[in-house]
C-alpha cells in the first residue's frame, strides 16, 4: 500500500447566500439560504514514500481543501483517506506526530513568543529526545539561517523570515511527510532559492515525502518529479513532470521580424501541413508548428521566399505555457491514474 491513499475523496462546503446590503443581511437572519459548493470532487491519488509531488491548479481549484483533509483538519464529506495506514481526521494527534505542515498564507507559530521558544515548545509537544532536537535544530538553523531572527517574536519578523521559521517548525520533529501549501508565496528570489534548496536537501537526505502546492512554476520545475493538476475539484492530470513536458515539448513557435508587411503570409502558409500562423502584424509573423512533422529549417526556408525577414527567434515551450493552456481548457490532458510513481 502507498504511503498516502486517497479514494473518491470529496468535500462539499455549505456557503451562505446573502443578498447585498442591509436588507439582504436582515433577510438572511430570518431565512437562511445556503448553496452547496463542491470543492473537491471524487479525487483518487496514491503517493509513495519519498516522492515529491507538485499539486497545482488555478485559484479555487480545491488544493488547500485537499491538503486540509489530508492533514486531518477537515472531515471529508465522502471518500477515503489513509496516511501511513491511519485515517487522519479520526486520529488527528497520531497523524500530527508524523507530518509537518506549512500554510504559506498563515503562520503556525505562536505570535507573541520568540521563535526559539516556539521551537522549544514544539519539542516538548512532540516529546523529542534532547539529542535529536539539538541535531535537528542545528541542521535547520544552518540551512534556513534562523540565527538572525531566532530571538524575535513571530509578530516582529518579516514575511520571508516567518516562512523560514514556519518551515523549521514543520520539519523540526523529522516528519515522514510534509505538506507545503504555497511555501514561497511573496518571497524574494534569494529566499525562494534558499527554501527550495532546503526542501530538496531534506527530501534527498531524509527521504521525506513532499506534497507541495504553488503558483510558482519555478518551484515545480526545481523540486518535483511528479505533477498532479486539479481543476474545479477534479484531477485533470497526474503523471511525471518530464512526461508532461515531453508530450508538449514538440510544439514550437517561430517569430520572424519583417522588414516590410506581408499580408499574404497566412494564405501562403496554409499549403504547409502542421503549421499555423499564431500572430501576424506589419512587423512580426509568428508560426506554431509540431517538431515531429516539420523542422524549423523547412519553415524558415518557406517563409524566406514569401517575406522580407530581418531576424527571427524560436520559443521553447515552457511548463508555464503548458499548464496555462491546461487551465484555459485549450489543452486537454488525459488523466493517467497513479502515474509517475
Amino acid at each position: 500500500m502507498s504511503l498516502i491513499e486517497v479514494r473518491a475523496l470529496t468535500k462539499t462546503y455549505r456557503q451562505a447566500v446573502r443578498q447585498p446590503g442591509l436588507r439582504g443581511a436582515f433577510r438572511h437572519l430570518v431565512h437562511q439560504r445556503y448553496t452547496e459548493r463542491v470543492a473537491v470532487d471524487h479525487i483518487d491519488m496514491s503517493i509513495e514514500r519519498g516522492e515529491t509531488v507538485a499539486y497545482v491548479g488555478p485559484n479555487g481549484a480545491g488544493k488547500s481543501t485537499t491538503i486540509k483533509m489530508l492533514t486531518g483538519i477537515l472531515v471529508p464529506t465522502s471518500g477515503e483517506i489513509t496516511v501511513d495506514g491511519i485515517v487522519p481526521h479520526k486520529r488527528r494527534m497520531e497523524n500530527a506526530r508524523r507530518i509537518g505542515v506549512v500554510f504559506g498564507q498563515r503562520t503556525q507559530l505562536w505570535w507573541d513568543i520568540p521563535v526559539i521558544e516556539t521551537l522549544s515548545l514544539l519539542r516538548d509537544i512532540h516529546e523529542m529526545p534532547a539529542q535529536e532536537y539539538r541535531k535537528n535544530l542545528d541542521f535547520l538553523t544552518e540551512l534556513l539561517g534562523l540565527d538572525e531572527f531566532m530571538h524575535l517574536t513571530a509578530r516582529r519578523i518579516s514575511l520571508g523570515q516567518r516562512m523560514r521559521a514556519d518551515l523549521a517548525a514543520a520539519f523540526l520533529h523529522s516528519p515522514a511527510i510534509v505538506y507545503l501549501d504555497e511555501p514561497t508565496i511573496g518571497l524574494d528570489i534569494a529566499v525562494k532559492e534558499r527554501i527550495r534548496g532546503f526542501i530538496k536537501q531534506v527530501n534527498r537526505e531524509l527521504g521525506t515525502t513532499v506534497m507541495l502546492t504553488t503558483h510558482d512554476l519555478g518551484d515545480i520545475q526545481d523540486l518535483c518529479r511528479r505533477i498532479v493538476i486539479i481543476d474545479h475539484g477534479r484531477i485533470i492530470f497526474d503523471g511525471a513532470l518530464a512526461e508532461m513536458t515531453d508530450a508538449f515539448a514538440r510544439e514550437r513557435v517561430l517569430h520572424f521580424q519583417l522588414r516590410t508587411p506581408c499580408p499574404t503570409a497566412e494564405q501562403e502558409l496554409q499549403r504547409i501541413p502542421n503549421v499555423t500562423v499564431s500572430g501576424l502584424s506589419d512587423t512580426e509573423l509568428s508560426v506554431r508548428f509540431d517538431r515531429a512533422f516539420i523542422s524549423a529549417r523547412d519553415i524558415t526556408g518557406a517563409i524566406m521566399q514569401i517575406a522580407d525577414v530581418s531576424d527571427f527567434r524560436i520559443d521553447e515551450p515552457s511548463i508555464d505555457h503548458v499548464i496555462k493552456r491546461v487551465y484555459d481548457g485549450t489543452l486537454n490532458l488525459a488523466v493517467r491514474k497513479g502515474g509517475g510513481a
Binding site: 486540509k68 492533514t71 486531518g72 483538519i73 488527528r92 494527534m93 497520531e94 500530527a96 506526530r97 507530518i99 505542515v101 500554510f103 498563515r106 503562520t107 503556525q108 514544539l122 509537544i125 512532540h126
Partner: peptide
C-alpha cells in the same frame, strides 16, 4: 479566522 487549523496540526489535545 481558521486559526483552529494550526491547533489541529499539533499532537496535543
Amino acid at each position: 479566522h481558521g486559526e483552529l487549523d494550526r491547533i489541529l496540526l499539533r499532537p496535543l489535545s
